[in-house]
């Protein structure tokens, strides 16, 4: 059995990393909850964000952390036309058609990444990415703490946006009854497009954090997509604060799995947890209040 400080460090890492998971999953959750869209290209938006952060640093020297908003904006702007030109025409055609379209988009994006950036493994090189923070016996990566803070702020802002603003009202109304929303004057397609772009922007910001903390390749998106699905299901589809809790839960459970069974079982633990939660609470751990 590993020593106490290993366990404590692992759990702390899991907790903070879970916050980053939550941010990366937020977009998936929003899009699923509001538009009923299984966005199979979500992982690619995340990787797009990582590339955006990388090239922001390379070309302009702007630290990706300082440029997070810029990254989010860029990814959001790129996502907007995808909704406008590919998804809008599919409205009212059931959930499979948009899902397949996004799968097509994910293939195209992956190949564009290879074409534009080569298949090389990349990582955003920053000093703080490898600095460690020691509190008593607990050692964790600074970047996890920074990422957690960024994520919590971003999630909090999105929460305020959705719960307090007129746009949020439109968004929630469009989620429950798009037809009625249109009748009372909400431009549902624009709300959907904005939600889609917002989701992509969050994924992009999360992707930059992933790019700083870890490494990425054009095909890394799929791995994160699955982790994100687990977070979404734990937190409940479309439930913003639930996503944060879901992310942290998953992070801690993965760490526990890593400690008890070895790091090889991390993702498996996540998936099994995901299945168990689905089987017990089909609408997610935190859903069911509505």
């Amino acid at each position: 059995m590993p020593s106490l400080d290993v366990v404590a460090s692992s759990l702390a890492s899991g907790f903070f990393l879970g916050g980053i998971y939550a941010l990366t999953a937020l977009g998936l959750s929003l899009v699923l909850g509001v538009m009923r869209l299984v966005n199979l290209a979500h992982g690619e938006f995340l990787i797009l964000g990582a590339y955006a952060g990388l090239f922001l640093l390379k070309w302009t020297g702007v630290d990706p952390l300082a440029g997070l908003l810029l990254v989010g904006l860029a990814v959001g702007l790129l996502a907007y036309p995808i909704h406008r030109f590919l998804l809008t025409p599919l409205r009212g055609k059931g959930p499979e058609a948009p899902m397949m379209t996004m799968f097509g988009v994910s293939i195209i994006m992956q190949n564009l990444f290879i074409l534009l950036f080569s298949a090389d493994t990349r990582s955003i090189e920053r000093d703080y990415a490898t600095a460690s923070l020691s509190v008593g016996p607990v050692t964790i990566a600074w970047i996890y703490v920074i990422g957690f803070a960024v994520s919590v702020i971003a999630i909090g802002l999105v929460h305020l946006l959705v719960s307090r603003t007129a746009f949020g009202r439109d968004l929630r109304a469009s989620a429950v009854d798009p037809f009625a929303a249109a009748i009372v004057g909400v431009d549902v397609q624009r709300v959907h497009a904005a939600t889609f772009a917002l989701g992509a922007a969050c994924a992009g910001i999360g992707g930059t954090l992933i790019g700083i903390a870890f490494s990425f390749t054009p095909s890394s998106g799929a791995t994160y997509l699955l982790t994100n699905f687990a977070v979404v299901v734990l937190g409940g589809m479309g439930n913003i604060m639930g996503t944060l809790l879901g992310g942290v839960t998953l992070g801690i459970m993965q760490s526990l799995g890593g400690i008890v069974l070895g790091d090889g079982y991390r993702d498996l633990v996540g998936m099994v947890l995901f299945l168990i939660v689905l089987a017990i609470r089909p609408t997610g751990l935190l859903a069911g209040k509505s």
């Binding site: 590993p2 400080d5 290993v6 460090s9 692992s10 890492s13 899991g14 990393l17 050692t139 990566a141 870890f214 791995t223 993965q254 760490s255 890593g258 400690i259 070895g262 790091d263 090889g264 991390r266 993702d267």
Partner: peptide, 11 residues
């Protein structure tokens, strides 16, 4: 396809 190695590194 693992991305996290914190436990084994800590070990």
């Amino acid at each position: 396809d693992n991305t996290q190695f914190t436990s084994i590194i800590a070990e």
